[in-house]
């Protein structure tokens, strides 16, 4: 008898723990009240921020940190929930399926354009199904070769690539990944033709170190530790400025090649979200992004904090979408 009582307690505790894990999503939809939208105080309850990529990864960790800061400004918690899958499509569709009341946000990125053109979003759900709250970060990428490669700089590499069209193997982070698009943009600018090897950001590093590819196009973040250790040589940075962690590496622009593609991240909501709510969110997220604490944090992931307002973000997304569509068409991935 005693034993079974004890077991009941233990099992109840275990069950409670399990239930708690299931509770990390937002509470059920509140019953709709026909109140005037203009007079609704915002926020009245916790908000849900959809994170599109793996729990514990850079997108997740940075997104949570940003949300913590914004939640302090808004006075209600922002719960970050990881909804991965479909290169972001699962998360984007989740957010679009919720009410446009400002309680459902997404930590979006270049992926908003890529998943759409890849054909993984419904035809009417491209970037314009969302409206920007604020653009937050930018991230540069780099083209790198192994330290003992015969090419000392970009010029020699280009010369070799021109002499051997389609022979130079370049690892990227998967078909249609941001780095694949960057590699295609580099091809355009350099006037060469690579053989693209779709891996992922970590496999690219092992493939280059293991000598299976000639070069990689990857986020600068993944190249930095290898370049610093003298295992890899970065030939150029795709970005607006040099990177503190490898100050000797010139940007592509400095070397006379016009490649301009940055990985950006920001906060977006469904497009019908009312203006005053978007503005409130915008102020909170911009304050969080501009805090020293967030900047310090982002630096560890080699991210540049480059905040803009929601309106600017909308225009920026439109501009980027056009460019990404063109690049995807070039590599034969554009479906819609």
């Amino acid at each position: 008898m005693k034993k079974s009582k004890f077991m009941i307690i233990v099992l109840t505790v275990l069950l409670a723990i399990t239930m708690l894990a299931g509770c990390s999503s937002t509470p059920a939809e509140q019953p709709t009240e026909p109140t005037e939208p203009t007079e609704t105080p915002f926020p009245e309850k916790s908000m849900d921020l959809t994170i599109l990529f793996g729990a514990g990864g850079a997108a997740d960790v940075i997104g949570r940190k940003l949300a913590d800061g914004a939640a302090k400004e808004l006075g209600e918690p922002i719960v970050a929930n990881v909804r991965t899958g479909g290169g972001g499509a699962v998360g984007y569709q989740h957010v679009l399926g919720q009410k446009a009341d400002g309680y459902n946000l997404v930590w979006n990125s270049t992926s908003i354009c890529v998943t759409y053109h890849q054909g993984n979003m419904p035809a009417d759900q491209d970037y314009s199904a969302f409206r920007g709250v604020a653009k937050i970060t930018e991230e540069a990428s780099a083209i790198a070769v192994k330290a003992d490669a015969p090419w000392a700089n970009l010029e020699e590499f280009v010369e070799y690539a021109k002499a051997n069209p389609g022979k130079v193997t370049v690892a990227n982070s998967g078909v249609g990944s941001f780095n694949h698009l960057t590699a295609a943009a580099i091809e355009d600018a350099l006037g060469v033709e690579f053989k693209h090897i779709p891996l992922d950001s970590k496999e690219s590093v092992t493939a280059l170190l293991g000598g299976r590819v000639d070069a990689m196009v990857n986020m600068a973040f993944d190249a930095i530790p290898q370049v610093q250790a003298g295992e890899m040589r970065a030939l150029g940075i795709v970005g607006t400025q040099r990177i503190d962690a490898m100050p000797d590496v010139p940007t592509m622009k400095e070397q006379g090649y016009d490649v301009d593609l940055l990985m950006w991240r920001g906060i977006a909501v469904p497009k019908d979200t009312p203006d005053e709510i978007v503005l409130k969110l915008q102020d909170a997220f911009l304050t969080s992004a501009n805090s020293d604490e967030f900047k310090e944090f982002a630096k560890k992931y080699s991210l540049t904090v480059a905040p803009t307002t929601g309106a600017e973000f909308d225009a920026y997304m439109a501009e980027q979408d056009e460019m990404i569509a063109k690049l995807m068409d070039k590599i034969g991935l554009k479906k819609q």
Binding site: G54, A55, G56, G57, A58, D60, V61, K202, V205, T206, L209, I224, P225, Q226, Q228, A229, G230, E231, F297, K300, Y301
Partner: peptide, 27 residues
């Protein structure tokens, strides 16, 4: 040694290293 996680658990751990300014890798 390389800064590359061997599985999903170490991928999460990589985050903890980075947050504390320790970039795993050759150095």
């Amino acid at each position: 040694t390389l800064g590359i996680p061997g599985d999903s658990a170490t991928a999460i751990m990589l985050g903890a290293f980075l947050i504390h300014g320790l970039a795993p890798g050759p150095l």
